[in-house]
Structures are given as C-alpha cells and as structure tokens.
C-alpha cells in the first residue's frame, strides 16, 4: 500500500546521506551563492501566480508597444518608451512579491533553515528582479522593431529608426532603479499590500507635494525618483541632476534596503 510509505526495513538503507552532485557532501562548505540565486530565480516562476505575473508583463509590453504604434506611427524609440509604463508599474510589484512572499506564506521557516545566513538569501532574492528589469527592457526593444516595421508598411509611411543608444541605456537604468525601489520597499515592510500601495501611489503623492509651495517643490525636486530619473534618459546629466538622483536613490532604495536588511536579519521567524 503506497500510503504506508516504503517498508521501514528499506528506510534505514535510504537514510545515509546522499552524495551531492558536485561531491560537496559536507556541512562545513557553505551553499554556493550561484545555487541560492538559481533557487530564488526559480521561485519567481514556479507558482501559478508567478507565471501569471510574468505572462502579464510580457503581454503588456507587446500590447502597449503595438497600441502606441497604431496611434503615433512607426517611431521605434517612442514605442520602446511606451513599454516603460507597464514595466514601471509591474516590475516593482514583482520585486515586492519576491521580497515579501516568504513572509506571507511563512516559507521563511524553510528557507532560513536551509540557509541560516539570511543576508545571502536576501542578496539572492534581489538579483532576479533586477536582471528581469534588464531582460524586459531588451525584450521591449526587440518587440519595437517588428512593430515599427509593420506599422510603417500598414500606414505606408517611412519608419523612424532613429534611436539614441544613450537613451536606451538610460531607459534600461530607470527600469532597474524602479525594480530596486520595489525590492527595498518590500524588504522594509515585509508586507506585500502595504509596499505595493506605497509604490503605486508615490507618483500621485509627489504630484501633490510638488504643488505645496517652495518647500514641497524642493522636496519633490530632490526626492521624487520619477523626476530625478528623467535626466538619465536624456543622456546629458549635470552634476546637480546627478546629486538629486543620488539623493532620491539613497532615500528610496539605499535607506529602506539597509533598514529592511537589519529587520530581516533580526526578525524572529515564526
């Protein structure tokens, strides 16, 4: 009867430690970081919700580029930029879910027993969303090419292939920063709904703050990541613009990430 499990006599035989693939059958060798990275990347897509969010992101990139193409015509760089709306909204969500998922489902109980050095797990969790930001940016560029060509043919107007490499680089950088902000908020709050609400409502909030006299405008100028990111795309960043970007990145990424790291390292897992 299968429900009873294997006959106990066989269990003793199966009990001795199995050999690891790379022969590192020892509890004195730390788990290689590459392995943690692979596992955390896999956790992004091995559940139905993970698969759905990935598919939605891919579909939205294609749909937004196609829709914009139909409206503004075959301008490749403009079309790529359109994907930024979808990525700017969903990349932080993906990053937040990565950071908070283990606490929502209490799988931290398993993860931190497998690797008690929690900072390594956090590092392994941080990289996949950042890499996904780069990969999805490249995907948007790839998708924009055939759509630009098709729109040009359909509308019978010449395609505008003018693309500034520095713009593409800056645009990819913005997407990475947005994902990093999601990671930091997720690590700090360890609560997906709260982090997602904050992440999605900040643009509205800054629009309000920016109108609150000179103090509000000053704050928005220095701390609103959306505003300070803009010069990245234009490709000619001045020193003061660089300082503002650094200040807002410190405020939205470095500080919450540092506080979140301390919180996760100290938190009692229940």
């Amino acid at each position: 009867m299968s429900r009873a499990g294997r006959h106990p006599n066989d269990i003793a035989g199966a009990a001795p430690s199995p050999l690891t693939k790379d022969g590192t059958m020892t509890a004195t060798t730390p788990i290689p970081f590459r392995r943690l990275l692979l596992v955390e990347a896999r956790k992004l897509v091995d559940t139905r919700s993970g698969k759905i969010i990935t598919m939605v992101m891919l579909a939205l990139v294609v749909a937004s580029i196609a829709a914009r193409g139909a409206v503004v015509g075959p301008k490749s760089q403009t079309l790529v930029g359109t994907a930024g709306i979808a990525l700017g909204t969903l990349l932080p969500v993906l990053a937040i879910l990565t950071m908070t998922g283990e606490w929502t489902h209490r799988t931290a109980l398993t993860t931190f027993v497998l690797e008690p050095r929690r900072h390594r797990v956090l590092a392994a969790k941080s990289l996949p969303p950042l890499l996904a930001a780069v990969a999805l940016s490249l995907f948007a560029m790839l998708v924009a090419v055939p759509i630009t060509a098709v729109v040009a043919v359909v509308r019978t107007i010449p395609a505008d292939w003018g693309v500034q490499p520095i713009w593409l680089l800056g645009w990819t950088g913005v997407n990475v920063l947005v994902a990093a902000q999601g990671l930091a908020l997720g690590a700090l709050l360890l609560n997906a709904p709260a982090a997602i609400v904050i992440s999605l409502s900040t643009p509205v909030l800054w629009a309000v703050v920016g109108r609150l006299g000179s103090v509000g405008a000053g704050l928005a100028e220095w701390l609103d990541l959306n505003t300070t990111c803009a010069p990245l795309v234009s490709g000619d960043m001045t020193w003061s613009e660089g300082a503002r970007l650094a200040a807002s990145a410190a405020f939205w990424i470095v500080l919450p990430m540092a506080a979140g790291l301390v919180r996760v390292l100290r938190k009692e897992v229940t």
Binding site: P18, L19, T20, K21, D22, T24, I31, P32, R35, L36, L38, V39, R42, K43, D46, T110, L114, E115
Partner: peptide
Amino acid sequence: LGAMTLGLP
C-alpha cells in the same frame, strides 16, 4: 527547491 539548495541530485 530544497534539493537544489542543498546541491542534491
């Protein structure tokens, strides 16, 4: 996931 983390086949 557990087997991957521990490097087991």
